[in-house]
Write a protein that binds this DNA or RNA. Structure first.
Lengths: 154, 154
DNA sequence: TATTGTTATACTCTATAACTATA
DNA sequence: TATAGTTATAGAGTATAACAATA
């Protein structure tokens, strides 16, 4: 039988602020911090940060996309995408193919390794989502997604 | 009368990925990006980033708190808090008072300027929240907050 | 021994301006 | 002129290790 312990310890209870706790933005940020921490643990083996994972997903589902449109899809600026693309290419998860009609652009494609890694990552992400959504049922999940899409859409 | 324009342009329609769009984490991150962009515009005048605003709020509502507990409340590590505290102190928005019983710690308090700035910021943040929540009614807002708190709480 | 604040360091993400080579 | 990719740079957030002063 575990020793009874105080539920509230004045030193352990984290300080709060009514002002902050009333803000959707603040509560959203805290939820995201928890989720990203779990995502990070989930992907440590594969060495895939959120942006790298998202890039692979967009490229797989839009084969031949160029860097400008990939950045546009993810809200990452062209300039900031360059080292990320370089990282994925150096790991041979993607290929930069030349475009016949336009010698400025690259057509991005997953390599076979990229397909495999993304498949593995997708399975892990499903587990991760199941974990973070374990306190929520399917109908609530749908409600949450719909509310999230409405946020900041004015 | 404005010239008719295409609703959908194959070059302008951002690429998507069914895999990504199905993930709560991804949709959450996108919502947060929109919200923080508006927050940033809201606070540009006051030169208050989200962390600085949150620090002022916690200090106001927990006068005398020390840096370790402030960091704990916000999920910011002691080491990373140091320059932020320094910034607020340099702007004379907070005071670091010595603690009678403990010569290692500082008791943090808002200055009069800090109180004023935080009051101004709080009003702006309420407007900001009204803006980002404009597509959502009060009952939905409550639902959203409750769902957010359940996320990652397994 | 443990804790508070601190320094130093490194990595990631983000924002901006400017360049090159093509179109 | 405009666009695709690139380079360079700076700001901001985050993580870790180690230190001095104090408890």
């Amino acid at each position: 039988m575990p020793k009874a312990r105080r539920e509230v310890d004045p030193e352990e209870t984290a300080a709060t602020s009514p002002l902050l706790e009333g803000l959707v933005g603040y509560r959203l940020r805290r939820a995201m911090t928890r989720i990203f921490a779990d995502f990070h643990l989930t992907m440590t083996d594969l060495q895939l940060r959120p942006s790298l994972f998202a890039m692979l997903a967009i490229i797989r589902d839009n084969p031949g996309i160029n860097q400008t449109n990939l950045g546009r899809a993810l809200g990452i600026q062209r300039a900031n995408l360059v080292p990320l693309i370089g990282e994925l290419a150096a790991r041979e998860l993607i290929e930069r193919r030349t475009v016949p009609g336009d010698r400025r652009a690259f057509a991005l494609h997953l390599s076979l390794d990229g397909e495999r890694i993304l498949g593995d990552a997708a399975r892990r992400v499903q587990d991760h989502e199941k974990r973070i959504l374990s306190a929520i049922d399917l109908r609530e999940r749908a409600t949450l997604l719909s509310l999230l899409d409405k946020l900041g859409s004015a």
